[in-house]
Amino acid sequence: MSYVHRVSPTWYKKPMIPNYISLSFGQVASAGSLIFLSGLLGLYLRLKITKSIYIAGLRTAFQLFGMGFLLQWIFKTQSLVLVLAMMVAMTGVAAWTSTERSARPFPGIFFNSVLGIGLSSWVLLTFASTLIFRISTWSDPQYVIPLLGMILGNSLNGISLAVERFTEELFSKRDQVEADLCLGATSWEAARPSFITAIRTGTLPIINSMTVAGVVSLPGMMTGQLLAGVNPLEAVKYQIVIMFLIATSTLLGTLIVALLGYRKLFNSWHQFEYWKVGQKS
């Protein structure tokens, strides 16, 4: 495998893996020409998407390079404070993203999702780093940051689907919820059908991914490892572990957010506080 030697700035560390094709900045820029051409095509067909494509393309480049520098810095310093700050920030952004576009928010929805996403992903991360990867220092950024990122990024989806579906079910089926209450159901008995639907909706994507993994799709992380020259069986082992972590974290997270949502929307008098749905904090 040829390795083109270039003069690199001192902050740029060359990869160590022998089978690995390192990309120069020029090579990345040539992929950028694709985005440039896509924009031109949009302009030519008058699709009104050129601006969005360019902005999104620039964001991808800037955000990822930003992240790259940040990670390189954190990997080098190995500072516990930096690693923690990074992890907290990632969790916060994930929680915010999962609720900001909610069609039916309710007071406390952000706090719920911080707790749901944070607790589930950190628990699974701890499990993975101590019992599976058994890394010597738990805060080793090379492991914990990518692991947390993958767990967060993937369980986030399921968790936000679950919150959304739970409030939507309760609100749109308010007649049924109240009819059950009127027939003597406790608030939990009345909320349970919506709760179950929410959990099923939230976990469906990851269950689907697990079902087709390796048959229809080659999951992203595994693909990355293969490109980096890792032996396929090794890459597969990592992928399996990751998917199990994501699945468990998604289930745990959806359960937490739906339970917290239930506690927020029903009171001790077994009343459905439907007027809270749609209110922001």
């Binding site: 209450l181 009127c182 003597g184 159901a185 001790s268 008098w269 077994h270």
Partner: peptide, 8 residues
């Protein structure tokens, strides 16, 4: 509050 389901 806990007597409400029975009441209903």
């Amino acid at each position: 509050p806990n007597e409400i389901p029975q009441f209903r």
